[in-house]
Amino acid sequence: MALKKLGSQTVKFHNPPSIISTYTIVGPKEGEGPLKDYFDFILEDDMWGQASFEKAEAKIQEETIKAAINNGNLTNQDIDFILSGDLLNQIVSSTYTARQLSIPYYGLYGACSTMTESLSLGAMIIDGGFADKVVCATSSHFSSAERQFRFPLEYGSQRNFSSQWTVTGAGATILSSTGDGPYITYATTGKIVDKGIKDASNMGAAMAPAAVDTLITHFKDTGFSPSDYDLIISGDLGKIGKSIVLDLLKKEGYDLSNNFTDCGVEIFDGEKQDTHAGGSGCACAAVVFNGYIYKEMKKGNLKRVLLMATGALHSTIINQQGESIPGIAHAITIDINKD
């Protein structure tokens, strides 16, 4: 019997796991953005003394997780599992981070939805009684993503207005069976939704249908309405995806115009920083959540938040073979109260 299942895609935690520590590291560009005061550590050089962008990303994730463990006054032995993932092929940043930490590791691939994928699974593992402390983490790096998905850095091409800027950084959350919150109270797992968008420079439009599907399902499963939340925030839909979600939810009878935004819209100043449709990448939702949202909840300025990281599960190979880009979105309810 799935005692904790609610509706079609949601689980309600009986003993909601508590967030006891977070940490964020971001690159120099993110450190100049509107949320700069919320990040724990801002890099001056996004190579961080490493020989390649991939190694730099792994180091960023590793140092983020170490600092989150340290912040919680814990040691590696206290952690039961790491749940982490990233954008790179074979999720190398996460694997090479886990290699350094000797903590049991589940590697996840959910592209930019990884933050809520790992938080959902981490919360289920703890509420299921399989662990006391779990690290949920993810990272991305502008330059490692550019070379894997787009063009070499020194290649002289123009970015179109729908393109987004991959966030350099990493975020880590420590979930615990005990603690004084904020708590993860509900998790709605998304389905893959693919409306046939093939344009890899318009990820917001590729992901928006999945975001709409998960949001509607979440409201139906839990009985919540948008106004039950202080903030509903998606991962990296960008300006275009955000506007699509607002449009389509309105058609379905949900008004999100007052409390909905997107991490990718908030992290950069689009005009000044020339980021076109906004930020993207696994780290986008990760640093906005572990930096801005967590700290505002701790202060009591936000009481209940719906965080929904969104992923475009894009592979250049199958995209060149003519396939479209599947989208996914996982939502979690984070509440300063247990129920």
């Binding site: 123009q158 179109n160 207005f161 729908s162 939704v193 409306k195 046939g196 968008i197 318009n202 439009a205 928006a208 249908p209 709409v212 599907d213 509607i216 275009i240 506007s243 699509i244 389509l248 379905e252």
Partner: peptide, 26 residues
Amino acid sequence: MENMTNKEYQKYAEKKVPKPTYFKNM
């Protein structure tokens, strides 16, 4: 969402993208 076909969605999403600054680019 279900009442929108893939073609309709793609057309709608296309309209959401700001047009390039044609004259300046040229």
